[in-house]
Design a protein around this nucleic acid. Structure first.
Lengths: 169, 169
DNA sequence: CCCTTTGGTCTGCTCAACGAACTATTCCTC
DNA sequence: GAGGAATAGTTCGTTGAGCAGACCAAAGGG
């Protein structure tokens, strides 16, 4: 971000957070990781992102401790660390804000608490339990705003059904 | 962001949100508006941002309906709209994530519920009431991680004391 | 009537993102 | 074990966005 590296002059830690997750593409990459995407090629195909930029963003996220590289034979898995999982509230809030700006009933993805099956509210709470479930306890399913799916790659097909977040493909 | 304008091919509304608030500087500008900053010159001085970029960001936010221009005699106030106020959960989550990544007890800004005075938790809830207060019901005060303040502009001085969010300077 | 404040625009430069081509390693198949 | 495909990148030339700094127009005050 080149906001300057002297964070001590920044009044709050937002600049520090944005230095890591505020760069172009980074949040979209992280959304994919929460949906279960782990591989370089899958990120690239689903986001239509330049390979050079994807390489740089993944490295930044690994260096920042948000993602972890896990060699799996000939390939590499990029998996969320604990710090990465802690980003879920930020990501969820942004998704809900983006959804709410059009027609509130036409949401694209709906998140529910896997414990009790209740849809979570705009603040991330499960209205039934009153808890704020973490990403390991959340299911995603397509919402009415998603429209007719056009992508036919295996990941998009799997996301047409209800799935637990973080389930690898 | 130039992520392409064909949002229909995007699986969820995150790209739409990032098209508006995901650009460099935008979230920092919005943080300032929640703290009560409203004027061009104040944004520019507090953020050390290029005037050309600030102009473009403010225009984007106004066009997107996040901020509203309010002429005040010879000057212009940039004020959060309802859609802008709805960004508070996203902003709060990012601030908390940035804070939590260093030492959790050394937070820079602490937010509390003005109704009951209780500090709000990392999910934005007031532990006493169980509610999720909106920005109009939240106070900010410096946290132990802020260190010795170096900035001496009027806005930074005012932020050394507890203040309600959105209070203009 | 001049000077300051405010809220910008304009210019030239640099650096990051882009698409496309190329590469190195591993795995699978024959 | 040879050939091809899949994976995870790197390299290159071009384009576009951000930067600092100079400049500018309108409003208000003395």
């Amino acid at each position: 971000m080149a906001l300057g590296t002297d964070y001590e002059t920044q009044d709050c830690s937002l600049a520090r957070a944005l230095e890591i997750v505020g760069e172009r593409w980074t949040m979209l990459i992280l959304r994919e990781t929460f949906f279960g995407v782990r591989r370089f090629t899958d990120f690239q195909q689903r986001l239509d992102i330049s390979k050079a930029v994807l390489t740089q963003r993944l490295s930044t996220l690994v260096d920042a401790g948000v993602l972890e590289r896990q060699p799996r034979g000939g390939r590499t898995d990029y998996v969320l660390t604990e710090a990465g999982l802690a980003l879920w509230p930020s990501l969820h809030a942004l998704i809900r804000w983006g959804d709410g700006r059009s027609d509130p009933v036409r949401r694209r993805r709906i998140f529910s608490h896997s414990g009790c099956g209740t849809d979570i509210d705009e603040f991330g709470r499960c209205p039934a339990c009153g808890s704020v479930p973490g990403p390991t306890d959340i299911l995603v399913r397509p919402g009415p705003g998603l429209g007719t799916p056009t992508r036919t790659d295996p990941i998009s097909l799997a996301l047409r059904d209800e799935r637990a977040l973080l389930t690898p493909f």
